[in-house]
Write a protein that binds this DNA or RNA. Structure first.
Lengths: 202, 202, 202, 202
DNA sequence: CATGAATGAGAGTTCATTCAT
DNA sequence: GATGAATGAACTCTCATTCAT
């Protein structure tokens, strides 16, 4: 493919990402992406043959770009509450900013597959649900490690971990979803974060 | 519009509802609804001129069909924990059953409006966000009343109400969303509910 | 579908037939047929969803419009040589007139299916080859009956029937094919017919 | 154009030939030929600028590669029936093997020109019909010579030569055509050949 | 010379929408 | 009121063809 080709693919993904964030998955057409990237029909199709494929690759890239950062901090013995502050700070920002979120696009993408029964993710692995599910498992295990770390250091309560993790993950996702369609009062993320902190910190 | 007309409209809404639950909002076409209802093109257009309008009316109907039931129970002095059990039981069921949920359709419907800037909700009120927002406010006030009731009866803790309410509402919505695209482990709703109960019950 | 619809379908088939005869099968597009019939895209697709389907129906109609005429003549005890003259006269005309012939279109249509392996003949029966083959069998049995008739009347020689029939059918088809792409000298059909007559007549 | 260039052209023609035999003329694209030959777009276009041109050259090469062999045999006074056996044996094989035949491609190629009115055969001569026609004339004269030879040797009947030649050529072509789209019973070529022999041999 | 990136024309297809009957 | 025939816009996708490197 060559270096130029790889760069074009990357450019396509970037432009497409902004479209998906803005309009969700279903409403983005190959034509939209042509216009956004400045490529012609044929030019785009040379690299990707459907919005499914593009989205799928975007998801792959995003998912692989995950947190080693956290592990690094635990390595360095950063206090758990400090790490928690940092993570929840990021969550808060994300919950408030609906514009950059792929939430709806993700939902549309995976829900479409459900009803279709098709599996157009470039053939890299088996089906998208599992990809999402793996992501959930991964986030969960990350939190689990982190909470263990906090408990070991005597900084977190030794509560039912799965319970608090599910609560964190799904309320976070819930707010993100709604932030794309409804003005989210700043207090909402703040309250959720406050609750999480109270539940965790000794 | 005579009685017959109203019934036809109702039938259209019912059939369309099942389509929206299955395929989301964007993927349902007027043609789909023609087929599902058995109406001809012209026949359908006589009653509704777009899927937006149909969906909007469905939402109106659903939102108006809300809980006076709860008020009735509080009136009858039913113990708060019993009411809580009942509500959370319903929530649990809904979190597990992705199939019947309009979650995605709602998200698509309102998010489409955001990006369009259009306001095609039948002209009844100004913009859908506020409709959704009102719904949120309404649910919130319902829970607020209910928690007050429990606190007054000495059955609920007197904690920060807004905090727990946001947590309940958004984690519930978060799970519902994901239930439509990912297999949800039975334990997830159970854990969330367990947490809520622990947070509320004395 | 209604009477109007049936008429539109018929009109489509007629116009398409002239296109197929002129350009063969592969070179005719749905757009061509739109233009020829004066229908819009959507209008045409309402009735037929591919040139395959149209061609297939044309073939069905043509094949069903076959020779009961011959049977009638044998019934009426018309002398075999007279009937032979009439049939071969028709053959001669058809061999000379390349313009109205579907030969190439038929060849393209069925050869495309071979390589594709698809079977898009409206689902009415199993595959097109058999349809062609049946046609061959049918023509063959028609000639067989007819030659028997001539032999019984003492007007035809009692020669190897299958031999002469294959010769008739394939040389006729061969000339028809070439008549679409090459000027056919009038003498060619005449010579072929002359040979056939000599082979058959006592 | 050096020797290497000529070889590349030859390779292109060979690969293209197999494609034309498999898919006919119209269905073969420059892209197909790129893939089949392993050449890049630009690479292919350096040598040939259209499938028409490639096909045309293939035809030229094939037509020039004709029978001096027959002349040689007559020179050597090989008995006419032996030569006939050999020729008809080859015909039989060709009639049965639809797969390697260019029949359909030829038909498509020349029929396309008819309707187009264009003349894209590399500019070497005026129009393809005449090329085909010349080929017919050429085959005919070959047979004419051969039959004369047989008659002179007292091995063939002195019948109307043009008649039997047309019969041979067109029934042969007819079967070849159909062999590409229909299973041809082994008996069919056999019967045709049997008839020809009976007509020729004393 | 050869490559493959890119263009743009054009075919296929699907729907929202209108309108004569 | 209701039907379904018809329109036309928009999208998807595929190639022939060109051209900078």
């Amino acid at each position: 493919m060559g270096k130029k080709g790889e760069e074009t693919k990357k450019r396509i993904r970037q432009k497409a990402l902004s479209l998906f964030a803005r309009k969700g998955f279903k409403s983005v057409t190959m034509k939209d992406i042509c216009i956004e990237t400045g490529l012609s029909r044929g030019g785009l199709y040379r690299y990707y043959e459907s919005t499914h494929q593009i989205f799928s690759e975007i998801m792959d890239v995003l998912m692989n770009a995950q947190d080693d950062e956290l592990a690094a901090k635990m390595e360095k013995e950063v206090p758990a509450p400090a790490i928690l502050d940092e993570i929840l700070g990021r969550y808060e920002k994300e919950m408030l900013d609906g514009s950059g979120s792929l939430s709806i696009a993700i939902l549309e993408f995976y829900s479409e597959k459900q009803s279709d029964g098709r599996s157009d993710d470039g053939g890299k692995d088996g089906g998208g649900d599992s990809k999402l599910f793996r992501q959930y498992i991964c986030s969960k295990s990350m939190w689990d490690n982190f909470i263990s770390y906090g408990v070991k250091r005597g900084e977190f309560k030794n509560i039912d971990r799965e319970e608090i993790i599910d609560l964190i993950l799904f309320s976070y996702q819930g707010v993100r979803m709604f932030s794309t369609i409804m003005p989210i009062d700043k207090q909402i993320p703040r309250r959720i974060i406050s609750h999480i902190k109270k539940a965790l910190l000794v």
